[in-house]
Design a protein around this nucleic acid. Structure first.
Lengths: 336, 336
DNA sequence: TTAATTTACGCAAACGTTGCCGAAAACTAT
DNA sequence: ATAGTTTTCGGCAACGTTTGCGTAAATTAA
């Protein structure tokens, strides 16, 4: 169907051997200037592009990296992806993006598929369902470079790029307290995720430092991180049906924040006089609400860039890397 | 670094030839049941995966398709991508997603890169800047299967999947008229895009059928489809500085709608008593506004699926296809 | 002029896989 | 028992590229 010219074609046309053409194109010292010019110009003319599959086969690398995120329709992830692409493309790598939709099964098949596609490395943010990471551990032990970002596992020893979730959560919760709220609930993704744990810490710290009690009935988890709207709905409704209703909610995720707002809207309570909301979100749409909603912004683009730099470092390392950092980037509180 | 076992390894371990192993794995009739069992079980044990690069090199296809969209952080496109993935993955294809950010230059490099990555086909929605499609025409003429969706070119003869933009625009505009608005402006992406033209047609038709005049000063274009917020800001401000200010705006795109709302918010005019908005958008966040904003919803997921089915049809066709349909899917007006 | 060196190129193998062709081994028919 | 079939497997080439090695021709040194 769609054939492009090969080194063989050039060699035949110019009456040279493939090795000469190959070397000429790579500007090897053992090819005369005249031949080089001839080859270069002809290659230019026929728009020669090296066949990436042949290269990958030969070099045993694909110059591609795999990305695994919950979903691209999430401002945090789409911004992170932009950061990843900016670095990867400038270094000659293709990225293959896959979505888990918060399902651990899809995470497994995606990772499996990427590995069999022989990507050179993996950039992963765990799905909300993922508790057991043995499917990743296996690959990692077999030598596949992996860098985690945002939602990172405890067990696997490699680079991890995260935001300062505890601090971000602390600031958001403190802001709600400063705004006069005392009964602050917390809705989060699945309890075992690193981000959930860290954000919970920030939340409870903020309550403690302000002399407030942590009330277990105020803390709700959505095991699918907002992918299943019923979970969010149940969480909110349970909070609202308490005898001592909360007057504010700190929501620990982009999609959860939106889901939460939809529920409140449905209940006709999307109004800070009814119940205030502050949450982690990278969406600028929060600006548009009246009154606007305070949010914790993660440096998603930077996190994507940093994660990619670390991954390429691993991929292109001459010797196995055994010392890994855990990079923590600052969040920003947008008070609205 | 990351080695996985090959057919050769299996052959050596089992004292067979590579061809026998290959055939055993593909359940060929000319291999005995015993050998098959042996090979299959050993392959299972060592977790054998065929090397996709070797396959691609041999079969001269990569089992991957390239996607070119403006950006994934756009609900229309992210939904379309989900549709594309659902079909592609079930048929054994990998998708490589690239973003133009509405730049024709990035479109060119992305397309070039995908082609040199030897994807089997391309799924494209043109960038807002793209007027000249000769870079795509070339590839198409050289035999690369391409299917366009959403923003489609006139010139290239292949499958095109679009929504009924004119009808959607007609309905949205009519809704604004029914709501009592008479001075309805229109903000759109770059004028040469197919979607812009069709939506403009729907808009003017609606005005005409309701006895209203089309006023050129009410029609504004943003050449970068909302990627450059200043363009949106200028458009809105120009509308608002007219002597006879519009009392409603029909906005022709997802990102534009958001951009437009940001401007109005800044001007403290995000309020239907000031100026009403209706627009094309696939985002459910519009639900959350008070009062909510009426929108035209495109069946993005279905469009993605259909486009992929058509593309795979082209890719897997035994004979060159010369008859192409232009599929038009229905939009849905969400009156809020 | 002859030998030693350098320059410029070709040959062949390898990466992992498939498929055509050939052939030993086993079976069937006479 | 012999010839003919079938079954089951191996050898080899090819996909496009790079690279180590070999070598004829050109250049330099003696």
């Amino acid at each position: 169907m769609f054939e492009s010219s090969t080194i063989k074609d050039i060699a035949r046309a110019l009456n040279l051997s493939t090795s000469t053409v190959s070397r000429a194109l790579r500007d090897s010292y053992e090819i005369s200037a005249g031949t080089k010019k001839l080859v270069m110009e002809y290659a230019q003319k026929v728009n020669y592009r090296p066949n990436p599959n042949a290269l990958s086969l030969k070099e045993r690398r694909s110059k591609s990296i795999g990305i695994v995120v919950s979903e691209v329709a999430n401002h945090y992830f789409s911004q992170a992806i932009n950061g990843i692409e900016s670095i990867a493309n400038s270094r000659g790598y293709t990225v293959i993006i896959t979505q888990t939709h918060e399902s651990v099964e899809r995470e497994k098949t995606n990772v499996q598929h990427l590995a069999s596609r022989s990507v050179d490395g993996l950039l992963i943010s765990l799905s909300a369902e993922t508790n057991d990471v043995s499917h990743l551990e296996q690959l990692h032990e077999r030598g596949l470079p992996i860098v985690f970002f945002d939602r990172v596992p405890e067990r696997i020893n490699t680079y991890k790029i995260i935001a300062d979730n505890a601090k971000g959560a602390y600031e958001a919760t403190s802001h709600l307290i400063r705004s006069g709220h005392r009964k602050i609930a917390h809705i989060s993704s699945s309890a075992h995720l690193s981000i959930s744990i860290e954000r919970l810490t920030g939340y409870t710290d903020a309550l403690h430092h302000n002399g407030l009690n942590v009330r277990p009935e105020y803390i709700k988890n959505c095991p699918h991180g907002g992918m299943i709207q019923e979970e969010v709905e149940t969480a909110v409704k349970e909070l609202l049906s308490l005898n001592d209703k909360p007057d504010a909610i700190f929501v620990a995720g982009d999609r959860l924040t939106m889901g939460c707002m939809h529920v409140l809207k449905k209940l006709n309570m999307l109004n800070p006089t009814m119940i205030a909301i502050a949450g982690f979100s990278n969406s600028d749409v929060l600006d548009l609400f009246n009154p606007p909603i305070t949010s914790v912004f993660q440096p998603a683009f930077d996190m994507g860039q940093l994660a990619t730099e670390k991954l390429l470092e691993l991929i292109e390392a001459k010797f196995p890397v055994t010392e890994f950092e855990r990079d923590i980037l600052h969040t920003r509180l947008f008070i609205r």
